[in-house]
Design a protein around this nucleic acid. Structure first.
Lengths: 345, 345
DNA sequence: ATGGATTCCGTAAGCGCTTCCAATGATGAA
DNA sequence: TTCATCATTGGAAGCGCTTACGGAATCCAT
């Protein structure tokens, strides 16, 4: 439990040069591998570097080469598998491409814009999840650095990637209607995020294409407590038209609602169907299993890193890459037969 | 969709100085706030800086002041709420303390040691989760930078923080025994990680203190598929002594096992009790609810950042801070009555 | 007024690295 | 043997910032 360990001064390019008996220029060249150095000096340098445990200081290198070999990932919060997967994908790909990743969480940050700009000074590009405040804070960056929006709006001037939302929501809603449901309600605030908006749009389009009128959205947050609250107003009969299917903006909401409804004696899906979005782990363990939509979140993260890299090198975007397909996961909560448990390889 | 946006050169301290009509030294002083500058020049500088949208380049600053104002968080993977919470806590606290966080995921990294050292060059300290390979890669860093192990071993020379494991496991196991269970089995590999080891130790101690002999651990991984596999061998009757309670190293395992057991017609907890560890979201939505142990993971992350900061300034560790208490959460799967659903504020 | 304190500011020296440029020595052709 | 050629190498500038250091301007007490 040594608290004031004496830290030996780290090796620098100078100490390596001295140890190897060459100039710092040669050390740099030998280590970069690129330029021309004789085998002899390269060997000497490599040996000395290894002996001294030398690793070039990132800051010095950044200053000299004028870039950072790092990307920022800025996220609103980090809940559930969604963000975890996103990060893993992003980090993995970024790392392959030779970039570190610095993480910035926007939730609860008093001076977001400052935080963003601060972060921006140590990276070559930023991938940003979150609209609203975050989006604005990032926009304030101007075009100083490449920015990529994840699951954001098509703002036209900044590139963005996302998972498909509208059509999946349309399919999901239609599926419910095919199950004979007639009084569907959408729970979630389309104004809160572009992907929620798209999901609600799919919901309405499914209705309209069948000549029905969609109910207005129930504008609540995306957390469990919001679901609980909604379930309670629903049970209290506050909802004018007695819903027979609930389309939730995410699984958290759906799970919480389903739980309360069941606790109150409602049968799912017999009395009322519930579907969610995201396919979180809990979705496959509750009974009935939660019908939901699975997004390729990890690939979204990977793609974000790859595109940022591309942006840096001026590689034009292939539009087709920018919206990733999703997958409907049908389980018992919508009225489908419960699927067999997945077989693990 | 502009792919080759012309990026205007960023403002530097020189351009600000020129715009403000002062020297770069004054700009630096005015912006640092600390040193003495007249109100007049400070105002001029601030105005110019604002006008030019100036933010000091982190790399240049790092080079000059010889530290980075950044911490690394290195994690083995990022699954479930555990890691997400940890990260949020870490980032939040680090940010409060004025540090950026750079993230390094060790899973699937071909040259881990290189990656770690690379990362180390751009931070002032690293918080590391994961023993084994990761631990070794970090150890290779020597004492070059402050390192903090999260949920690692007490290696003596490096500081570490963790949640309490042994006593909670002891309590949990005793609780099961009080429920009348007699043939408990522990699922998880004590050799895979220090915290799993401690949990198994608690398991054995609970037995010994009652004069019973603990069964040897079932050494499997921590993922759902491992649980499924175990459940299947158990159902196949491979397990010599017919278990009446399963203590899992984490919730993922417990959930998967419980699911398969129920699917096979076993009644939980009547026929067999199952308990986990972590209190993931799914734990409170499955039926029966999963009895588990909740760790203050977020606070673990916060503490990690705070201690790293302390290490940097030579603040000695308060030992009491280093192991955080956990909380038993009793639900139906151990034989307790199902608690009422939580009330959200 | 005059001296010594105080303030405030600019000059310049780095921080550790990359890279252009010129110098070196070795090589081959004449 | 001599000279052009070429592969290597070192010198040095510069990336943008902080921070001694010392000079100038201002102040107060005498």
């Amino acid at each position: 439990m040594s608290s004031a360990a004496p830290r030996p001064p780290a090796a620098t390019i100078y100490s390596v040069a001295e140890a190897a008996g060459v100039s710092i220029a040669s050390v740099s060249r030998a280590l970069q591998g690129s330029s021309e150095v004789s085998e002899r000096t390269r060997a000497k340098v490599l040996a000395a570097a290894a002996r001294l445990n030398y690793v070039p200081l990132a800051a010095a290198r950044s200053l000299a080469v004028r870039h950072h070999e790092a990307f920022a990932l800025v996220l609103p919060e980090l809940d559930g598998p969604y963000f975890a997967e996103l990060m893993m994908g992003f980090e993995a790909r970024a790392s392959e491409l030779g970039h570190s990743v610095v993480l910035l969480m926007t939730a609860g940050k008093p001076d977001l814009e400052r935080a963003v700009r601060q972060t921006a000074t140590r990276v070559d590009g930023l991938a940003v999840l979150g609209s609203g405040t975050t989006g604005r804070a990032v926009a304030a960056l101007g075009s100083a650095k490449p920015v990529l929006f994840i699951a954001g709006d098509d703002t036209g001037d900044v590139e963005g990637i996302r998972a498909e939302n509208l059509n999946s929501a349309l399919d999901l809603t239609s599926h419910l209607i095919e199950h004979g449901r007639r009084r569907l309600v959408f729970v979630g605030d389309p104004g809160s995020a572009p992907d929620v908006r798209d999901r609600y749009d799919g919901f309405t389009q499914a209705h309209r294409s069948l000549g029905r009128a969609p109910a207005p959205p129930v504008r609540v947050g995306l957390r469990e407590r919001d679901g609980v609250r909604f379930a309670e107003t629903l049970l209290a009969g506050d909802h004018a038209e007695h819903a027979d299917a609930i389309v939730c903006a995410n699984d958290e909401l759906a799970l919480a609602i389903m739980d309360r409804l069941i606790a109150a004696g409602r049968r799912i899906p017999a009395d009322i169907a519930v579907v969610g979005w995201d396919d979180v782990m809990a979705a496959r363990y509750v009974r009935p299993g939660l019908t939901t939509v699975r997004q390729p979140v990890r690939r979204l993260g990977e793609l974000a890193a790859a595109r940022l890299h591309g942006l840096l090198r001026g590689t034009p975007a292939e539009d087709s890459l920018h919206v990733l397909p999703t997958e409907l996961v049908l389980r018992g909560s919508c009225g489908c037969p419960e699927p067999p448990p997945p077989a693990w390889p």
